[in-house]
Design a protein around this nucleic acid. Structure first.
Lengths: 205, 205
DNA sequence: TCAAGTCATTGACTTTTGGTCAGTAATTTA
DNA sequence: TAAATTACTGACCAAAAGTCAATGACTTGA
């Protein structure tokens, strides 16, 4: 990689990191491009070299968080379906709690914002989630943990809906409950309730 | 009511209706105060007589929708718990589908926006939902449909989470599925699964 | 090694839009 | 009907998004 490319990457990285910090402490409403560039020590114009608009960098930040969670999941090589999904939920909520409510708000906001929809970025959060969960479920069908005729698409929708429902509620309530508590007490029960109709009798590890 | 008060109310109403139309067709990103007032045939300053800021009118619009749903629910005088909740879900989703995806987006956006939190408005959507569902559940305990020790608060959280989870997903996916389909296929099953532990043996009507 | 070319960076500039406020006009009151 | 009240006006301000011609740091190739 040439020095020029290296510097460009560094600048981009610096902008993302700076924006992330500002977002965490002050939220989206208080976020402005000039603050980001000032804090990052570059000129305003530079921002628009790397990002199409303000919403774009927020999307990017959220995608970063998402990748972290995905990486954890991919480390779980061969757990069974319910366990895998449980851990997925757990990690997700633990992460959400750790990132804080402002980031959680942007996660949702950018997920539903048409401005950050697929034509602006490579892939939407929705598509990302769908692909990840579809893979998990399809693998479970291969392993005969799930019945062949399980409605994979609808199941993925429901699981994602559980995650985002909890996140949305957490933000709505301005953080009155603990996301991890929530998962502990309910998500697992609900998960089993949904899945039960489609699980085979195959002994679960 | 004096003529002056009447006119003031009319102006306010006109602003809300105009904003609602603009929101439905173009979404929040394209919504600007000057467009609203121009379309409504009043000056820009008038807007700020009736609303604290742009987000305020969006909140108001969403609250209007919410009240419609609540009214329908209050018409169901004496259905049993599961039926009542089912109808609630049904009405909610039917309404969401009818209002359209842009309104749904604003519903969520304004629900999670700290700018529209309780200190700006009389009551937040979260509190509104909580109160409504808590009432339903408490009445069910009175009727001995629900066990006395049912965790009312947590159950309300879960139910609201189901609704908003679905709405969020619908917006994320840019409307790939039908909200009413969703309810039909899953919400009822999940609802029963959650509630089952706390229902009494009392015969349900 | 150096001249020509490329491209990241700059910051002054324009544009957009949210929000204010002193003044005006319509309505009410006494 | 004159004084008081208050809804309304629109010019104005401020903040922040977004643009672009000019600059200079780095790369390339003879």
């Amino acid at each position: 990689m040439s020095k020029r490319q290296e510097n460009a990457l560094k600048t981009r990285r610096k902008l993302i990191d700076t924006a992330e910090n500002l977002l965490k402490t002050n939220g989206f409403n208080a976020l402005c491009v000039e603050d980001i560039t000032k804090s990052a020590g570059v000129a305003k114009g530079t921002f628009y070299v790397y990002f199409k608009h303000k919403e774009d960098i927020v999307s990017e930040i959220c995608r970063g968080y998402f990748k972290q969670i995905e990486n954890k999941l991919s480390e779980m090589t061969d757990a069974d379906l319910i366990e895998k999904l449980s851990v997925y939920f757990d990690n997700f909520m633990r992460a959400v709690e750790l990132y804080g409510i402002n980031i959680c708000r942007e996660w949702i906001r950018s997920a539903i914002d048409p401005k950050t929809a697929p034509d602006y970025t490579d892939i939407s959060k929705w598509q990302y989630d769908i692909i990840m969960l579809t893979n998990i479920l399809n693998k479970a069908i291969e392993n005969k943990e799930l019945k062949k005729d399980a409605p994979v698409e609808l199941l993925t929708h429901i699981i994602i809906s559980q995650l985002y429902g909890m996140m949305t509620c957490w933000c709505m309530s301005d953080g009155v409950f603990e996301p991890t508590d929530w998962t502990e007490k309910f998500s697992k029960i609900q998960l089993k309730a949904i899945m039960n109709n489609y699980l085979t009798q195959r002994k679960q590890r």
